[in-house]
C-alpha cells in the first residue's frame, strides 16, 4: 500500500487512482458543518482565515472529547456531501485534499479535476480505530464550536481509500464493475 505524507504535491496527487488504498501521515485539519459555514462567512467579508489551508488536507470530522491519558476521543469521518456547498470555493482558495465518507456532487468533482485535488474516504463508524492514528491534536480555530472547532491533527498511518481522483474518476462509478468482476 502506498504511504503518503501531507502536504501532498501535485505529483503525488496525480499518481493517486480511484479505488486505491493508501496510508496517510502528516498534518490534517478537521472541519465540518459549522466550521465550513464560518469559513464561508469570513471569505464573504474578505476577512483573513484563522488557518492557512493552501495545499492542505481537511478531515470532515467532529471528534469526541479526549478521555484522560488519550490524545483524542473517537474521531471517524462524517458525511462529506453536507460540505459540498462550500467545497468548490475552498478548493479554489487552495484546499487540495478532502477526507470524509460518501459521495460528492458534480461541482466538487469538477473542482477536484480543475485544481488537481483528491477526495479520500475513511470507514464510516470506525471512530475508535481512527483515534489511534492521531499523534497530536490542538484546536486552531472556532474554539467556541466545541466538537465542530477546527482541530489541527498530526496523524500516522491512517488507512484511507482514494474515492475521487484528480481526473474525476470515482470509486462510486467504478464499483459496479468491481462488484460484477468479483461475484
Amino acid at each position: 500500500m502506498k504511504q503518503i505524507t501531507t502536504p501532498l504535491s501535485n505529483k503525488v496527487i496525480r499518481d493517486l487512482k480511484a479505488g486505491e488504498q493508501i496510508i496517510l501521515s502528516g498534518t490534517i485539519y478537521t472541519g465540518r458543518d459549522a466550521a465550513h459555514k464560518r469559513i464561508a462567512e469570513l471569505l464573504d467579508r474578505g476577512n483573513p482565515l484563522p488557518f492557512d489551508f493552501q495545499g492542505q488536507a481537511i478531515y470532515y470530522a467532529g471528534p469526541c472529547p479526549a478521555p484522560p491519558g488519550k490524545i483524542i476521543g473517537s474521531a471517524g469521518p462524517t458525511t462529506s456531501s453536507r460540505m459540498d456547498e462550500y467545497t468548490p470555493r475552498l478548493i479554489q482558495k487552495g484546499l487540495r485534499v478532502m477526507i470524509g465518507k460518501g459521495l460528492r456532487n458534480s461541482a466538487v468533482i469538477d473542482a477536484i479535476r480543475q485544481y488537481t485535488g483528491v477526495y479520500l474516504t475513511a470507514v464510516g463508524g470506525a471512530g475508535a480505530f481512527y483515534s489511534k492514528c492521531v499523534e497530536s491534536s490542538e484546536i486552531v480555530a472556532f474554539d467556541e464550536l466545541g466538537a465542530e472547532a477546527v482541530f489541527k491533527l498530526t496523524v500516522r498511518d491512517m488507512p484511507l481509500v482514494v474515492s475521487i481522483d484528480c481526473k474525476g474518476d470515482s470509486i462510486y462509478e467504478l464499483r459496479e464493475r468491481i462488484v460484477e468482476e468479483t461475484l
Binding site: 469526541c64 473517537s74 471517524g76 462524517t78
Partner: peptide, 11 residues
C-alpha cells in the same frame, strides 16, 4: 472501543 472504553463512533 470495548477494550479502551471509547465510543465506537464519534457521532
Amino acid at each position: 472501543a470495548a477494550r479502551e472504553n471509547l465510543p465506537v463512533c464519534q457521532d
